[in-house]
């Protein structure tokens, strides 16, 4: 008597694994980005500290190996998440109409994720390319780059894009996998805003500091 209704069984394993991997990569990138922000902020403690840290990364091949690895993770993350992004104009219209109609913050937040992702894809790639093709990283070279007007503008745009993307990213991961329960959702969202704000501010101060590093 059971199982009378026929329906096609879809192989779910692929979808599940992609989702799991997407989560892990996303999480790794969140951690990396926050550490990255703290690392570059070490300039605030002086170029010597910055250089010492960079040297440390270099000596243990964290930059040479980790850098390209990171680029790979970065791209993989993009391609996995892109499964969700509507690329046909018709789908984009549907989502846009529904998002505008709904006036719902978490849905808007996703639009933010998608738009920032596009910026990060291009600008992030450029940034990685520029840094990794000119190793080692030193405060001098970074400062020299930033002190040209173009790169300052570049980073002033990339910084908030990254931080908003990362903030929305971990909030979303927490929601999806139940780390953030519904009772803690508002608190988590507030925390997300504060943390994102903090890192944007930290980034701005860091950039400002680089403007005043005297390039030898």
């Amino acid at each position: 008597m059971q199982y009378q209704v026929a329906f096609p069984t879809a192989s779910g394993s692929r979808a599940a694994l992609l989702d799991l991997v997407q989560m892990l990569l996303g999480l790794a990138l969140v951690v990396f980005m926050y550490l990255h922000a703290l690392f570059v902020a070490s300039i605030l403690l002086g170029p010597q500290v910055f250089n010492a840290l960079a040297d440390f990364f270099e000596r243990y091949y964290l930059a040479q190996v980790g850098g390209p690895l990171l680029a790979l993770v970065f791209l993989t993350h993009f391609f996995m998440a892109a499964r969700r992004i509507p690329f046909s104009q018709q789908d984009q219209k549907k989502v846009w109409t529904s998002t505008r109609m709904l006036a719902h913050r978490d849905t808007w937040l996703w639009t933010v994720q998608v738009v920032t992702a596009m910026f990060i894809l291009i600008m992030g790639a450029i940034h990685i390319w520029v840094v990794l093709t000119d190793l080692p990283i030193t405060a001098d070279k970074s400062a020299a780059r930033i002190q040209t007007g173009f790169w300052l503008g570049f980073y002033l745009l990339l910084l908030p894009m990254v931080e908003m993307h990362v903030g929305a990213g971990w909030y979303r991961l927490g929601i999806k996998w139940g780390v953030i329960k519904s009772s803690a959702r508002n608190k988590a969202k507030r925390a997300e805003y504060y943390i994102t704000g903090f890192f944007i501010l930290l980034g701005l101060i860091t950039l400002a500091r680089f403007m005043f590093v005297s390039v030898s």
Partner: peptide, 10 residues
């Protein structure tokens, strides 16, 4: 099913 959900919470 569940892995299509993006966690938008509408």
């Amino acid at each position: 099913g569940i892995f299509g959900c993006m966690g938008l919470l509408g």
